[in-house]
Nucleic acid binder design. Sequence first.
RNA 1: GGCCCCAUCGACUAGUGGUUAGGUCAUCACCCUUUCAAGGUGGUAGCACGGGUUCGAAUCCCGUUGGGGUCACCA
Length: 502
Amino acid sequence: MVGQRVRTRFAPSPTGYLHVGGLRTALYNYLFAKRMNGDFIIRIEDTDQSRKVEGAQRNLIKTLEWAGIVADESPEHGGNYGPYIQSERLHLYREYCDRLLEDNHAYYCFSTSEELEENRQLQLKQGLQPKYNRKWLPEEMGGAVPSSEIARKIGEGCPYVIRMKVPDYVSVWFEDMIRGPVEFDSSTIDDQVLMKSDGFPTYHFASVIDDHLMEFTHIIRGEEWLPSMPKHLLLYEFFGWEPPKYAHLPLLLNPDRSKLSKRQGDVAVEDYIRKGYSADAIVNFVAMLGWNEGEGTEQEVYSMQELIEKFSLERVGKAGAVFNVEKLNWLEKQYIKNRPVEQIITAIKPVLAAELDKKETSMSRELISSDRYLGQVIDLMRERVGFEHEFVTFSAYFFFDPDAYEEEAVKKRWIPETNDLLREFVSALEAVEPFTAEAIESALKEFVAPKGLKAAVLIHPLRILASGVSFGPSLYHMLEVLGREAVLRRINKGMERIVVPV
RNA sequence: GGCCCCAUCGACUAGUGGUUAGGUCAUCACCCUUUCAAGGUGGUAGCACGGGUUCGAAUCCCGUUGGGGUCACCA
């Protein structure tokens, strides 16, 4: 154990999407492993055949890789400890279960689920903790069932499960890397089912066997697993194995502080991807939910590389953390503000292409799809958008002539003389050479000054005509990027369509 | 309910016996400004409560309260 290469794991069940809590668990496992120059492994826990979802495994791994979490070993990457899918390891569980049976640490149980339920109800009615009544505990383990009876049931082909025999009154203790010492009394623990009647192991059994065989040094998982620690520890003891180190992470919470769940917002990483969040922001955000560098650091933005360099389990907090979308949004903006243009251009080209497929435009498709044009749009808009796709959707006027004008804004900015002034200014604009922000600005100021008017009387209407909306980047720069042709077209067309308020 | 975990501004958190309890998001005000952002400045806002220990507790101990998790042939 000492001096051993660190190995951590993320062990999802392939039942659907990747939960953001799962992403954080995977991330912490990954960061810790990488920090320690170790390996991060993905194992698929598909011991519940009924819950298995087609394609889930692929999707889980794909989403992790989207986030930048690439496994050193997994069903897809291979490795020396495979197979990495539990349903392909059934013979192993059977083999180890037999050992437990031989050593009297486990026993056959033929109780039906109806019996179990009945027993549970009875105990509940009596005010007792629902617990298996050990009806099938064999004589040699202190129970009442002769081995001949067990042999007979097996011979008859009766369905059975195998349960672990939890010793009666022992104290189970371990040192959690995040929480410190935690102690349990075995009398509160049920005789956990190890092998189900369909021949598959339960989570508890399979994960202990695999964690040992795959030689993980550290198990980093959600706090919801803390109560099952004694079962796992007892199994290690039965086998005479040294357990790995454990770290139980605090939970991710809904705004009402319950365990993060659907119905109170999005929980699937894919939901956030779909909305346009970047891997940079999601990873950064989720990493900070429970971990921080400490010691007066005021850094908020961390790259994956920095996280790897700085992460430590000692600095993971104990209390649950609310998944606060507002801060995520802020982080996303930070990344958009600082991301290289080329990268954004690449990202938004397909978005633009899709929009262009849906809608006609009077602009030159070639022009507005060019790197140069997109680069200019990005320069003007990067401090104004919340997501990359908004470079296209939120600033649609860079790609499509407006087909409506903000009513309130028109009402506020139009005076009876506005259209006349605009008509006159159009001639001035036609003459502006070159058609640059500076030239447009001085043209406008020179136009307005002799009339004793403020620039604002034209600025606002121009913006509305050019973009359809009352907000956006610097007017002059916007006009420059749009180009003379589009600007004049939009002004002329707009004046025909605007209903001047009386 | 039993067991287990947890507890600093609305949220994320720094703090490890002596601080005017700091930062970030959000929020409010002001500045900048052609709009919207961005940015700048400032403000509101917190140690759950009660006992100890100590010269001195957000920090250590106990209890209370509160919150959460978990009690399956699901993981």
